[in-house]
Structure formats: C-alpha cells, structure tokens
Amino acid sequence: MPLYVYECPECEIELEERRPAWQADDPVECPICHGLCVRTVSTVHIHRSSSPVYATPEQVARIVHGVDCVCCRPRRRS
C-alpha cells in the first residue's frame, strides 16, 4: 500500500498513513486535536528498518507540544 502524508492545519503536524490509492484524498483524523488532516505533497520516504515503528497519539503530542501542554493533557470523561 502507498504511504501518504497528511497535515493538520490546527496543530501543524504531519502524519504518514498507509492506505489504498482510492482512499488517498480522504481526510485523516488528527491524533492531537481530532480535527481533519488533509493530504499534502511529500518527498519520497525510505524506510530502512524491517518492521515499522508507530507512535501513539500521546507520544506524538509529547514530541510536538511538550510534556505539560494544556491541549494535550488527557481529558476527563463526563
């Protein structure tokens, strides 16, 4: 499956997503703000490891916003 790059206009992060070509232009949910990420034009990415490494939404939030970011703290369920 092809690898596509999506960008969140709110968080300004890039996400890589493997999906079929017929779903390439469908938006992806942002793991941080839960908004919609749109597909962007990207350069070629080469993966050298035999098994892919995936980050959880919490790990992405810590990397992008830092540990004490107000918008990335876990939300309480009502």
Rank of each mutant, 00 (worst) to 15 (best):
A24G: 01
V38E: 05
P20A: 14
D25T: 13
R19S: 09
L36F: 03
V67Y: 11
L3K: 10
P57K: 05
R18W: 12
C33G: 02
T43K: 08
E10Q: 14
V60K: 11
E29K: 06
V5F: 06
L36N: 03
P20R: 08
R18E: 15
E29S: 11
P57Q: 07
C69R: 09
C11F: 04
I13N: 02
R73C: 06
I63W: 08
I63M: 09
V60C: 07
D25A: 13
P52V: 10
P52R: 13
V44P: 02
Q23G: 07
A55R: 13
C71E: 13
L3P: 02
E17D: 08
I63Y: 03
V53A: 14
P74S: 03
A55C: 09
P57I: 10
R62H: 12
T43M: 11
P57N: 02
E12G: 01
S50K: 11
E7M: 11
C69V: 10
V67R: 14
P20I: 07
C72N: 08
H47N: 09
R76L: 14
A55H: 09
E7I: 05
P31I: 04
P27Y: 05
A61F: 04
V5Q: 05
S49E: 13
L3Y: 03
P9D: 04
E17N: 12
S42T: 08
V41N: 01
W22P: 00
V60G: 03
V41G: 00
R19N: 13
R19C: 13
V70H: 07
V5P: 00
C72A: 15
L15D: 05
V70E: 08
C37L: 04
R62K: 15
E10S: 11
R48T: 13
S42Q: 14
H47M: 09
L15K: 11
D68F: 14
P9A: 09
C11E: 11
E29L: 10
R76H: 10
P9G: 05
R76F: 12
C72V: 12
C30H: 06
I13V: 14
P20M: 09
E7L: 04
H34F: 14
Y6L: 01
E29D: 11
C33H: 06
H34D: 04
L36P: 00
H45N: 08
V44C: 05
D68P: 00
P74L: 14
I13S: 02
S42A: 15
W22K: 11
E16Q: 07
C69M: 08
A21W: 02
R75K: 15
Q23M: 13
V70K: 06
I32T: 09
Y6W: 06
V38A: 07
Y6K: 04
V53T: 09
L36K: 01
L36R: 09
E12Q: 15
T56L: 13
